[in-house]
């Protein structure tokens, strides 16, 4: 088997805050296989964006990598000199932001912004950059005749296409997309997801898609990494994790999600909210909200354990998952005690 493009090993990231050190990412491990889209999902504050930013090397200045490795194409970026990492950025690891509205410079023509990347980072000549820009516009479904327009002349969906074109300009080895469709309307969202899917198949892109939306992950990604309160709680193939979740958090989310296709069932919330990471619970971080709590869950932090092909779960009761899943479908299970 080919080695993964990116191997995140035991990554921890801390923020300095007024309330002390907050470990927003704590011992996160997962890998991105070559040519696959990995969906990194979780709720606000779970650390998914911090992980994504650490890989692109643009952490907030109050944050630092406290431990772990980011092995990209066989080389650890964390241990590498800063300059080397800097060179990887854009050329080999590119980024699609959430709001293309804010990431394009309003006073430059779109074509000029594409060419800038190609000339300064990619070392192309102006003429080469120009023809590559047209090619990129074609690729993301934009009319190359509009290269000379300004960002305000483009709609939200079109700007997101430009952001994708920018990210793909230098044939990167890894693309990181942070909530690339969250700000868009459903129809445009679907069109952008189709662009991402097509390009991934055509160019065999390796990609991390950060999102809070499980349906987005279900639509495009091959593999899913679920984060909760700074930890990875479950990973596996998208189909497997969504159909047979093994972590109680994931089981709870499935019930809480309104689904258009199935019969209108009553939605069941997960009681409570994620823990404060300035003082995380000593045991499992989901324990305060978990309906399947055992005494050991409150003291003993479950490690992530492999459960079959490409599957890992961080839960003491993972071996009983099939049983728990049946119980998780009953709304009474989730009612606060």
């Amino acid at each position: 088997m080919e080695p993964p493009v990116l191997d995140v090993r035991n990554l921890s990231i801390e923020y300095r805050t007024s309330r002390g050190i907050v470990r927003a990412v704590d011992g996160v491990s997962f890998s991105v296989p070559k040519g696959a889209i990995v969906g990194l999902v979780g709720e606000s504050g779970c650390g998914k964006t911090t992980v994504a930013r650490s890989i692109t090397g643009v952490l907030h200045q109050s944050a630092r990598i406290a431990g772990g490795e980011l092995v990209f194409k066989g080389k650890d970026l964390v241990a590498a000199p800063a300059k080397e990492w800097l060179e990887k950025r854009w050329r080999d690891i590119s980024f699609i932001p959430q709001s293309a509205m804010n990431s394009l410079d309003p006073v430059y023509r779109i074509g000029a912004q594409l060419e800038e990347v190609l000339v300064h980072r990619g070392g192309r000549t102006r003429a080469e950059a120009r023809s590559r820009s047209s090619e990129l516009f074609d690729m993301v479904g934009l009319n190359p005749a509009r290269l000379d327009e300004y960002p305000h002349q483009f709609s939200g969906g079109m700007r997101q296409r430009v952001a994708i074109a920018l990210a793909l300009a230098l044939n990167p080895g890894l693309v990181i997309a942070d909530e690339p469709v969250t700000a868009l309307d459903v129809i445009v969202q679907r069109q952008i997801l189709d662009v991402i899917r097509d390009l991934q198949r055509k160019l065999s892109l390796s990609m991390i898609l950060v999102t809070h939306d499980i349906s987005v992950v279900a639509y495009v990604s091959d593999k899913i990494v679920v984060m909760y309160a700074g930890r990875v709680v479950e990973t596996g193939s998208t189909a497997d994790v969504l159909e047979r979740p093994r972590h109680p958090y994931m089981m709870g989310l499935t019930n809480a999600f309104p689904d258009l296709d199935t019969a209108a069932h009553d939605l069941v919330p997960i009681d409570g909210s994620p823990p404060d990471l300035a003082s995380p619970p000593s045991g499992c971080r989901f324990a305060p909200r978990c309906p399947f709590l055992l005494p050991r869950c409150e003291t003993d932090d479950p490690a992530s354990a492999a459960m079959g092909e490409g599957r890992s779960v961080a839960c003491h009761r993972a071996p009983e998952a099939d049983d728990l899943r049946a119980r998780a479908k009953e709304s009474a299970t989730w009612l606060p005690a």
Binding site: V186, L193, D213, S215, A218, Y219, T238, E243, D259, D261
Partner: peptide
């Protein structure tokens, strides 16, 4: 256009 949280869609 609405995506659903399942792979077979």
């Amino acid at each position: 256009a609405v995506p659903v949280p399942r792979v077979d869609q």
